[in-house]
Structure formats: structure tokens, C-alpha cells
Design a protein around this nucleic acid. Structure first.
Lengths: 201, 201
DNA sequence: CCTATCTTGTGAATGTTTTCACAAGGACTC
DNA sequence: GAGTCCTTGTGAAAACATTCACAAGATAGG
């Protein structure tokens, strides 16, 4: 439920603005959906609103954080300290929401040992051991496409059960492992498709 | 239709391997869906296969490129030369698929005039003019969340009708403008959600 | 040329998601 | 405390997407 995540963000903004209460209509407006959708989404997890009034911002915020599992810190490892990896490690929005990158790996001997945003880049060979020792829960894969499947296999073998993949390949993971793709090329192609279909009309 | 984009990628791989023909079953396997799905997807645009044989790799490749509008180069501008922007500009996979970043903008006076992967970083104030002059068709927004809506408004006003947004906000664009989000935080939160729901079971 | 084997393309069935529409609950006013 | 105004929560309907299942082409081998 990716919309929940969006609602959470909007609630944080509303909270920062000191709004005390928010209607499904308002949430819908800000998230680009409909009020019925918002209510259905939320009602899946309980009934948090007050009729005639809307949802209490702080309460709903708490509930959503609970539902999404964001009341705690998550230990994250980054695999691949290339351009994208480097951009991600200092991405404030991860830290802000409780995702702490606690290990960085790369295969390039020239990078190993160097410091990246306060983290020492570790040798790829240490990956399995370090993952287990530090109790990493989520891995971010930012390696070239050719290397990605091998990396994810090792990650999964060392006990991590959630992977966020930036490499432009479809990865295979065993059942029970959560996997998400961030595929920038697909998104761009989606735009190209939209532009050309429009043209054709 | 984001699967089409994926099929295209798989076909390119198949083509590189000199496979001449591919069945819906094989495509399904590699893309993590079902053969019926693949056939339905493709049949939406025409019938490209040969019964008993499968799809001709080069032919289907050509068709898909045509459908997705990838037979030509797309002129892209990057707005925001921060960490993410810098990573994107040298992302080979964009160039490889015909997306050419032809202008880069930033507001930071320290960055303006500097060279980024062969592109001079231009002053944000030049944006409207340069966009029009160069005939930019797609804009990539990689600025902080607070600045994103203002930027996208200006982009749209200067005639660009496709936007790929990396800022963690939901942008509003007028009808007729294609918009896609790459929201890394949402994806990570999706993983956190998956992990905690599993736990609850 | 006939048969066996593949694999497409597509209606029909099934499943999922979104939207509609409205009863019921709460707050505020007079 | 009766009436009005909001806004939720939710069944039912509609829209959309996926899967099933199979007739019909195409090939290959004898």
C-alpha cells in the first residue's frame, strides 16, 4: 500500500502546520486521489476518524507510523558505492524517517577503505559477515545490472529479507523476501510513451 | 504500461545473445509474469507473433521501440545539480536508450558555470529561455521538496510536457502534462511495511 | 500429405481495485 | 434538545486487470 506512505508524509506536513484535524477530502486533494479512496485505505486497518470532523492529525500520524512499522529504526546496508550509491548515502530523507545506513560495500579496491559520508567503504568480501554481525535488515542494491543478481543472492543467503534494487534488471528472490525496484529508465520510457501516444491522437 | 518497457529490455538482452525467437512463456519467465499476460499486453498493440514459434526478437524489438516512442532521441533537461542530479547526469542507461540530457540548471551560485559530466551548469534564471531554445521535451526534477512545485510550474509554463520527479512531494501539473514520480522513501517504507506485516503474522 | 507438437491470439471467467451512494454518528447553533 | 451541517465507514456497483482455456496457425518429421 504505497498510498499509505504518501498519507504519512502529508500528515507530517499538516502536523508541522499545526493542523489538528484533516478530512479524507483534504488528504485526497493533497495526494491526488479521492476521498472515498482515502477512507477505504484507512478503514482497512481500523477506524481512526471522527464523523463530521475528520481525522485527528497526531492520532492518525501515530497509527500510520505503527501500521507501516516506522516506530523504530531500520538497519540498512548499501551495496555499491558508485554514483547512485554515493547520492543515496547522504540522502537526508532516509535518515529522517528512521532508515539508518550502517554499512557500505564495494568491490573496487580503490574505493575500499575510503570514507563516504562518515562510513568506511567495506570490502565486498566482508559483506556476509558484516551483515550478520550488524543485524542488517534492509539492503539497498546500487551495483551495475550484471552484478545485481549475484549480489542479491548473497544478501538473501546472509539473512536479509528486504531489498531495494536500483539496478535495471528484474531480480529473483525466494519467497518471503520483500523486493522493490526503483527503475528510472522505465519511468522515463513511460514519459516517452505518454508523449508519443498523445501525438498519435 | 510499464511492463512493455521491461519486455523491451529483455528483448535487447535476448538480441545480444543472438536469440532469434522468443516465446511468451520465455518472456514471462524473465519478467516475472505469466505467458497469458505477455500475450495480452502485446496483443493490445497488434499481433506480432508467429503461432507455434513465438515472437521474432528483432521484429518485436522494433515494434516495441515504435510503440514506446524510442526510435528517436529525446531532449532532456536536468533541474538541480545536487547529489541526485549529479548521479543522474552520468547515468549511462539514459543515454543508452536515447535520452540525452542537454541542459542542467541549479540555483546555487557556487555551482553555476561549473562543468558536470560535460555540461555547463546553467543559472536557474535561464531555465525558461534555454528550455524553449533547445526544444527540451522532458524535464527531470531533482531539487529539494520545498522547491519542486515552483520549479515544475515554471517548466510547464515554458512548454515542457513531461516531468520525471525525484523530489519527495506530490506535484500538481495541468492536464496534458505527463508526470512520473521516483519516490525512494516510499519504496523503503514499503519494505518496512512488508517486514512488519510479516512479523505480525 | 498427414500427424504430432508448439505457441499465438482471444473470448470468457475470475479476481482486484476504485468509485458511488448513503445511513449513521458527532458537533455546533439557536 | 431539535435541527442543520459535516464527514466517516461501508455495502453495492462499476471499472479494470489478470488468468484460464482453447480454437486456429505454423512448423517439422516422417
Amino acid at each position: 500500500m504505497r498510498r499509505l506512505s504518501l498519507y504519512l508524509r502529508l500528515l507530517q506536513e499538516a502536523d508541522a502546520q499545526r493542523e489538528e484535524t484533516i478530512s479524507s477530502e483534504a488528504l485526497a486533494d493533497r495526494s491526488g486521489t479521492t476521498s472515498a479512496q482515502v477512507r477505504k485505505d484507512l478503514s482497512l486497518f481500523g477506524s481512526f476518524g471522527k464523523r463530521g470532523l475528520g481525522y485527528g492529525v497526531p492520532e492518525l500520524l501515530r497509527e500510520l507510523r505503527e501500521i507501516l512499522g516506522l516506530n523504530r529504526r531500520w538497519k540498512v546496508a548499501l551495496i555499491g558505492a558508485g554514483k547512485i550509491g554515493s547520492a543515496l548515502i547522504s540522502y537526508r530523507n532516509f535518515q529522517l524517517r528512521g532508515f539508518a545506513i550502517e554499512a557500505v560495500f564495494d568491490v573496487d579496491p580503490r574505493k575500499i577503505g575510503r570514507n563516504l559520508a562518515g562510513q568506511e567503504i567495506l570490502d565486498d568480501h566482508e559483506m556476509e559477515r558484516t551483515m550478520a554481525e550488524k543485524g542488517i535488515e534492509i539492503a539497498i542494491v546500487a551495483v551495475p545490472a550484471e552484478a545485481a543478481q549475484a549480489v542479491v543472492d548473497r544478501i538473501v543467503a546472509s539473512g536479509v529479507s528486504a531489498v531495494l534494487n536500483f539496478a535495471p534488471v528484474r531480480l529473483r528472490v525466494p519467497e518471503g523476501v520483500a523486493l522493490r525496484h526503483v527503475d528510472m529508465v522505465v519511468e522515463l520510457e513511460g514519459l516517452a510513451f505518454a508523449l508519443t501516444s498523445e501525438e498519435r491522437r
